[in-house]
Design a binder for these strands. Sequence first.
DNA 1: TAGATTGTTAATCGATTAACAATC
DNA 2: TAGATTGTTAATCGATTAACAATC
Lengths: 214, 214
Amino acid sequence: MAKRDNISSSVVRRLPRYYRFLRELDAKGISRVSSGELAKRMSSTASQVRQDLNCFGEFGQQGIGYSVAQLKDEIAGILGISCGYPAILVGAGNIGTAIANQVAYEKRCFELVGIFDSDMRKVGTVISGITVSHTDEIERFCREKDVVTAIICVPKGAVEELADRLYGCGVRSFWNFSHFDIGMKYDDVTVENVHLSDSLMQLCFRIKRSREDN
Amino acid sequence: MAKRDNISSSVVRRLPRYYRFLRELDAKGISRVSSGELAKRMSSTASQVRQDLNCFGEFGQQGIGYSVAQLKDEIAGILGISCGYPAILVGAGNIGTAIANQVAYEKRCFELVGIFDSDMRKVGTVISGITVSHTDEIERFCREKDVVTAIICVPKGAVEELADRLYGCGVRSFWNFSHFDIGMKYDDVTVENVHLSDSLMQLCFRIKRSREDN
DNA sequence: TAGATTGTTAATCGATTAACAATC
DNA sequence: TAGATTGTTAATCGATTAACAATC
């Protein structure tokens, strides 16, 4: 993890995929892998793989390839997978519940420490071991725990005010499932938007195009 | 919608965002917009916006700008938003339920016509107006309806076999929420992968990096 | 030694940005 | 007419690919 400086967003997008594939290989008991094999799996080129990895250091052995276990751990380190940043989730609807379970299950990058909803019927219910609190509690909660990340699963209309409140509590990173684009407003926040409807529209477009081509 | 030829994947990724923003402007009753204003909202440049739109046609008026309503409709047409491709969803767990509701609610690109699960306890329950069927019914169902797209919300281990079955039924496009990479196997399928854990890892990486920079 | 494969530099390709004539 | 803003071509920038010496 030596080099760094300016890592392009395309490399960042590929890192988790490298990690996933290496974990799979590791689980299968495969101990060595070449840039060519990695490339094949990534629908990429050997050059690309070597270039990507060289952003962070020299992990391979000339003539031999890469050690699967070592490279996996290196990339885990680069991604910061064991950081366990304290995170809260706001909005315990369908998506919120699904995501809460996912995050609690992964347990790597983030530790889910609280779930909030403005609906009193949700307050008190338990999702993946965590009792849902009312959104009024957010400020107090964030002051107590050192919440780093907020997972936003509330309807679009409620997001802007919520984001402002969370920002006020010191939260500077967001995993955003709403249609509202957080991060336009503040320039010191890290936002990962998951716009499912964008994804759906892209699929729609690509289906349409593939049908036109025939 | 005249020009076309080779549209880059970066343009495709931006199209839904243009659409979302135009819909917002339209809802606000704003009738004209310039490439500069669009760019600001897209965190992009006026050049980029004009270049993007010119892949598909000439939608603006020199000296004036673009008509919001017209451009919105043009992009809707380009994306194929009103196609309503018949889609089924497989895997009625947390994420499946959330996605089913989302798709049923949007009702634009796809029309959800069936939901399937292998768990008998789920079979017979109703999700957003659709009764869940057993996965054994998939083949018969696909033969009857002309299912275009399958939304995959089953655990990783079950995906490969499922994808093969669906491919056998003529399904050639997938919205994939599992960790398994569909599409490595067949080259005539359109796959939109939503790898939530990749998204999470990217966020983790970017948080880590922003903290190191301080 | 011969074969394989890395790290790294150079070449190519594509995407973004700048510039500007056309025109409302 | 002057100002604004498009469509489009040219210039720049960055990302991908190719090439090759180093070395296991």
